[in-house]
Design a protein around this nucleic acid. Structure first.
Length: 674
DNA sequence: TTAGTGACACTTTTT
DNA sequence: GTGTCACTAA
């Protein structure tokens, strides 16, 4: 509580009733939320009856950590020393993992099995593909990926399959509406949900079953929502449903940082808040503690170009500091080299460590070249955001094993591992197994014993299948008495996975990296060691699917703290770093090509907010860079500096001119302040 | 059945 | 540049 300014204190001390905190970037928003949680507990709210929801799992992790520090400060030693009993903790979670927990309890009411799985992108695509095939839509007309995008869009607006036809406008959308019905019933048939369903089904559960709403709402006395500007319709209604009883709802947001419009987020929710909750208290946080005056200048100048916004003044609480630097480089390789050299140089100063630096990118593909340079320079780094870790082949394989052990009817995981590592169950064997399964209307796993007993397979294949069956059965037995970490260990061991890695990756470096990610997965699973039952395994798998709130062990986190962070601007939201590099400041990247082509003019505004989010991550020094040429699929292409560079520096009128005419004033790599 | 080769399509952002 | 898919040789 000490050191809070009056507005912050106001936000922390008014603990009952609805509250809207309009908080600009760097105004101590997260601190307010965590302090508020601590204050609630201090004044008698049981910790486990507090729910805090955030957007990215990174933000959830950060908040958990900060809250833990505050809470342990409150009560020293005594009770925690004995430490046998787990201290009740507030639930700090992302929307998606909150919904998974709710669905696990009640989803059978909607006709899904309790053991429902959450399907990944690959599963989604194959289901979308079969749906399209069934209504005979050729790939050229509507690709599975496009269909998924349209469906996701509808789901974000809570449009159900039967309503889709009435909102469809183009021919493509009408086809998509027909495919949507099939897609959705296939998901249900397979007992699986996609990411959007997690929200949609939770919402349905609450509206169709008031008793469930009451039960779930009754679990909490206090609800906090961070990054409120990014809630979409479902999220908004879920929050409302949970909070309508006690009305103790505190939401925190900043309309200038709304960057998820493409996912159905509506800034409108911030404006509507005081309508839905008329007695709401509104608090504004406008004093920026994070960045130097020079950085804030750039940020404020930039965001002023957006017309649709609440006028807000961010008052700098710090001195002017160093002016942001703009680097003009020849190509993307030089850009990466220059940035890394800059970091190395800065690291020579005392008191500066690798963890003080962040490189912010617009797309997920950009970090690659920086990774190469960082490795060359032997600088520690972490690639944050994205699902990169769980996307790796070896991790997905092992997760598929665990999924099959937990639920052998999970068809797509089954197909993934049935011959990985190769064990003599080739395509033709799988095909006949599948045929038998379809014929009997059973999942593949249950068809195996029958196929084996009727001798429908050649001897060699039958032997392999039998061995595989035994492997899974053994693992299932182990699962009953081993915690997830040990089980993952057993999977690696019994499936001879290491031998497989040695086989596929002849390069020892590759091998080492792959082995390391296997290791990492086992570590992550080991954190779920409280219980050794099937439910614990499922909990782990749920967390993996929704990008768990808190995966990875402490050692790894410690390592990450001292590494250069490489991340997208989207996943950088809510974070801060002393030294920030924003790279690829070019038209087509930021703003992204897709928003330039978009029909709505507001698409550029969202890109500008994204840029604003990036700029306001910097505490001490901001460096913006762009390359004159950039390779795309092998071929170098000329680029144009981002319009945002001109806007920030007060040269907006130059933005339209060709890069040639303005390059003179940038010769030095720096530009004069307007 | 598997390993190896070459053509190919692909790149917003997150859970 | 890179991961996936189809095809071919063993």
């Amino acid at each position: 509580m000490a050191g809070l300014n009056p507005a912050q204190r106001d936000a922390v001390q008014t603990l009952t009733g609805p509250m809207l905190v309009l908080a600009g970037a760097g105004t101590g928003k997260t601190r307010v939320v965590t302090t508020r949680i601590a204050e609630l507990i201090r004044r008698g709210t049981p910790a486990e009856r507090i729910l805090a929801v955030t957007f990215t799992r990174k933000a959830a992790g950060e908040m958990q950590e900060r809250a833990a520090v505050l809470l342990s400060r409150g009560k020293k030693g005594a009770s925690r020393k004995r430490g046998k009993k787990k201290e009740p903790r507030p639930l700090i979670s992302t929307f998606h993992s909150l919904c998974v927990k709710i669905l696990r309890r009640h989803i059978h009411q909607l006709g899904y099995p309790e053991k429902f799985t959450i399907c990944d992108r690959g599963d989604q695509e194959s289901i979308a593909r079969t749906a399209l095939r069934e209504i005979r839509v050729p790939d050229e007309t509507l690709r599975p990926g496009d269909l998924l995008a349209i469906i996701s869009n509808w789901k974000n607006q809570s449009i159900e399959p039967k309503e889709a036809a009435s909102v469809a406008e183009s021919d493509r959308e009408h086809l998509a509406a027909a495919a949507y019905r099939r897609y959705q019933s296939k998901l249900k048939l397979r007992g699986t949900t996609d990411f959007d369903d997690l929200l949609l089904l939770t919402e349905q559960l609450m509206t169709k079953h008031p008793a469930i709403r009451r039960e779930e709402a009754g679990l909490f006395d206090q609800i906090l929502v961070d990054e409120y500007q990014d809630t979409n319709g479902s999220q908004y209604r879920i929050v409302k449903a949970l909070a309508m009883g006690h009305r103790n709802l505190c939401v925190v947001g900043d309309d200038d940082q709304s960057i998820y419009g493409w996912r159905g987020a509506e800034v409108q929710h911030i404006l509507r808040f005081t309508k839905d909750w008329p007695e709401a208290k509104v608090v504004r946080l406008e004093e920026n503690y994070r960045s130097t005056g020079a950085i804030l200048d750039y940020a404020n100048t930039l965001i002023a170009f957006n017309s649709q916004r609440h006028d807000k003044i961010l008052r700098p609480a710090r001195g002017a500091g160093q002016r942001p630097q703009i680097l003009q480089l020849q190509d993307e390789t030089q850009e990466a080299e220059t940035v890394i050299t800059g970091i190395q140089l800065a690291l020579q100063q005392p008191g500066i460590k690798a963890g003080d630096f962040a490189i912010l990118c617009r797309t997920n593909e950009q970090p690659r070249i920086f990774e190469t340079e960082l490795r060359k320079a032997k600088l520690p780094y972490v690639l944050l955001g994205g699902m990169s870790f769980f996307d790796r082949k070896e991790v997905r394989d092992l997760v598929a094993y665990l999924k099959v052990v937990s639920n052998p009817t999970d068809e797509s995981s089954m197909l993934r591992i049935i011959n990985t590592p190769p064990r003599g169950i080739g395509a033709s064997t799988v095909k006949s197994l599948m045929a038998a399964a379809v014929e009997r209307g059973k999942p593949l796993w249950e068809a195996i014993p029958e196929v084996l007993s009727t001798g429908g397979l050649p001897a060699a294949a039958a032997g392999s299948v039998q061995k595989f069956q035994k492997l899974i059965q053994d693992l299932q037995e182990l699962a009953e008495r081993l915690p997830p970490g040990k089980l993952a260990d057993a999977v690696v061991d019994r499936s001879n996975y290491h031998r497989e890695l040695d086989r596929i990756y002849p390069d020892p470096n590759d091998r080492e990296a792959r082995r390391a990610s296997v290791e990492e997965l086992i570590n992550a699973a080991t954190n779920y060691s409280d219980g050794n039952d099937e439910a614990t395994l499922r909990e782990f798998l749920d967390d993996v699917a929704v990008g768990g709130d808190d995966l990875g062990d402490d050692k790894e986190k410690e390592l990450a703290r001292n590494a250069v962070a490489l991340l997208t601007m989207h996943s950088a939201k809510g974070l801060e770093y002393p030294y920030v590099y924003m790279v690829g400041m070019e038209e087509g990247i930021l703003p992204h090509r897709r928003s330039l082509e978009a029909v709505e003019a507001s698409a550029i505004d969202e890109e500008r907010r994204l840029c604003y989010v990036g700029v306001t991550r910097a505490q001490e020094k901001l460096t913006l860079s762009f390359a004159l040429t950039r390779r795309k699929w092998g071929k170098p292409r000329e680029t144009t500096p981002s319009r945002f560079l001109y806007e920030m520096t007060g040269q907006a009128e130059n933005a339209k001119k060709s890069s040639k005419s303005t390059s003179k004033q940038r010769k030095t790599g720096k530009r004069a302040k307007p």
